[in-house]
Lab assay of single mutants.
Amino acid sequence: MGFKLLSKLLVYLTASIMAIASPLAFSVDSSGEYPTVSEIPVGEVRLYQIADGVWSHIATQSFDGAVYPSNGLIVRDGDELLLIDTAWGAKNTAALLAEIEKQIGLPVTRAVSTHFHDDRVGGVDVLRAAGVATYASPSTRRLAEVEGNEIPTHSLEGLSSSGDAVRFGPVELFYPGAAHSTDNLIVYVPSASVLYGGCAIYELSRTSAGNVADADLAEWPTSIERIQQHYPEAQFVIPGHGLPGGLDLLKHTTNVVKAHTNRSVVE
């Protein structure tokens, strides 16, 4: 069995187990497998329904001669939608809004960016022009300005110390501490036991640490421990890039980060 097929099978099995364990909360999309990078042309966006009122959005972007996937989250909030992270750029984010209108038909009224990198804030200006209120932590807003990236308009308070959590509509926002970046936030959907790890969490097929220019490698494993301790009931975990899975993604990420750190020390 090929690795790609095995990865998709694991996603399907995880979703099936969740649907059985929580039949009222989960209505997993039966329309197909989780979209992969090879299936999404740059400039297009796919939506994948995880649970009743919960979707991931998947886009792709060219970077350094390669094409990478990027995940975000959409959560229903009454007759409105909360968006977590842009679709990595203005063109993708405009396509995301169009796809949401086509498939869901509810307005996106608020959006949260989970850290300051372009795959999370690139497209904020498109959201703002569409009347979406954009939010991020003060740290993310400051770092985005320093980096020359787009800056969300509103500040999220109460997320300055490791372990801080605040309720934001249908989700809980959690600051686990520094990891992929010093400002990275985690998003949890309690009604569906869905954990969105953003770039602080890796997919299972990833074996290298990737972009760690703004990471705190020493603190990252401790931050992941905080996530595990705060959300032990999480059933569906979405990484910032690639295929979702279960809580095993947290341990896998820790292993990859520690291996990278150990290699760096040896070198």
Rank of each mutant, 00 (worst) to 15 (best):
A129K: 11
L156D: 02
S38W: 12
I227H: 01
L47W: 03
I186V: 13
A144Y: 05
L106Q: 11
L6V: 14
A87W: 00
R128W: 07
Y196I: 02
K258R: 12
R120L: 01
A21E: 14
K251M: 12
A192C: 05
S137M: 15
I50M: 09
I151Q: 08
G148W: 05
Y12L: 09
V108P: 10
S113W: 02
S56K: 07
V237F: 05
K258I: 09
Y231D: 00
K258T: 13
G89V: 02
E150V: 04
R110S: 11
S7T: 08
S31V: 09
Q228T: 14
L247Y: 15
N211S: 05
G246E: 09
A178K: 13
G198P: 00
L81R: 02
E203V: 05
T14E: 06
D164T: 11
A215E: 03
I20V: 14
Y196G: 00
R167A: 11
R167Q: 13
E145A: 13
L127T: 01
L6W: 09
W88V: 00
F26D: 14
S31K: 09
N255Y: 10
A259D: 13
P23A: 11
A129N: 15
V146N: 12
L97C: 00
L97P: 03
S205I: 08
A144Q: 04
A165T: 13
G78L: 07
V256D: 05
S139R: 11
V266F: 13
I104A: 00
E267D: 12
A21I: 15
D119E: 03
H115Q: 01
E147F: 15
K251G: 12
K251V: 12
L96Y: 00
L10H: 15
I50R: 04
D118F: 06
I104G: 00
K8M: 13
L204V: 11
L159D: 02
T86F: 00
G89P: 05
V257S: 02
W55H: 04
G177I: 05
D118I: 07
R110Y: 15
V194C: 01
L96K: 00
G122K: 08
G2D: 15
H252G: 03
V265W: 11
Y68R: 03
T222F: 14
A259R: 13
L82A: 02
L82I: 11
S155Q: 14
V28H: 10
G158K: 08
A129C: 03
T36A: 14
L82T: 08
I84F: 12
V126G: 04
E147K: 15
V45R: 03
D64V: 12
P190Y: 06
P152Y: 02
R120W: 01
A234R: 02
A25Q: 15
P232F: 00
R142Y: 13
A192M: 09
H117V: 00
A19T: 15
V256M: 08
V256N: 06
A59D: 05
V212D: 07
G43L: 05
E147W: 15
R128P: 06
L97S: 02
D216P: 02
A209G: 06
M18F: 14
P41K: 13
G65P: 05
S155L: 12
S27G: 12
V67H: 15
L159F: 05
S30G: 15
P107N: 13
R128L: 10
A90Q: 10
L249F: 06
V67M: 15
T93K: 01
H57Y: 07
F63D: 04
G177C: 04
N92C: 01
I224C: 02
S62L: 05
G197F: 01
D79G: 10
A59T: 09
E172P: 01
P35T: 08
A165I: 13
P69Y: 14
A200F: 03
Q228R: 11
E157F: 10
D119P: 01
P41S: 12
V187T: 02
Q49S: 10
A130M: 13
G131Q: 08
R46G: 10
Y188K: 02
H57M: 01
G240V: 05
P138G: 09
T93Y: 00
V112A: 06
G246Y: 03
E80T: 10
A94I: 14
S137F: 02
T153S: 11
P221S: 10
V75W: 03
W55I: 00
V11R: 10
V75M: 03
E145R: 14
Y34D: 07
D29E: 10
A218M: 12
L143A: 09
T182Q: 13
G32T: 08
A215N: 03
E233T: 11
G32V: 10
S22A: 12
S223F: 05
G89K: 02
P138Q: 09
V256K: 02
T14W: 06
G43W: 04
A215R: 03
E172F: 01
E150S: 04
G163F: 06
I104T: 04
L24F: 14
D79P: 09
V11S: 11
W55Q: 03
L243T: 13
E80C: 05
F26E: 15
M1A: 05
V108L: 09
V37P: 15
Q229D: 12
Y196W: 04
A133N: 09
L185T: 03
W220Y: 08
I186F: 06
L9E: 15
D77C: 03
W220M: 03
T36I: 14
G242K: 06
V108F: 01
N184A: 01
L47C: 04
I151A: 07
A133Q: 14
F116M: 06
L204G: 14
G78E: 11
R263W: 10
V45K: 04
Y175D: 02
S193C: 05
S223N: 00
E233W: 10
E44D: 10
R226M: 09
S223L: 03
H117T: 00
T134R: 01
I151K: 08
V37A: 15
S264V: 12
T109G: 12
L249H: 05
N262L: 11
F168P: 03
A94Y: 13
E44G: 15
V124G: 05
V187Y: 00
G105T: 13
M1C: 05
H180T: 00
T140P: 02
N255P: 05
E267L: 10
S193H: 11
F116Y: 09
H180L: 04
Y12H: 09
G177T: 00
G242R: 04
K251F: 10
L97Y: 02
P152W: 02
H180E: 00
A87G: 00
R263H: 10
E33S: 09
E39S: 12
L156I: 09
A136Y: 01
E172H: 05
R206F: 15
L217D: 02
L6Q: 09
L5Q: 15
S27K: 10
L81T: 06
I74D: 02
D64H: 15
L81F: 01
T254F: 14
S181D: 00
I17V: 12
A59L: 04
A133K: 14
F3H: 06
G78C: 05
P69C: 05
R128Y: 11
H115C: 00
L97M: 08
Q228D: 07
L195K: 01
G43K: 06
I186E: 01
G245N: 05
G78H: 10
I58K: 04
G43H: 10
L10G: 13
I104Y: 00
C199P: 02
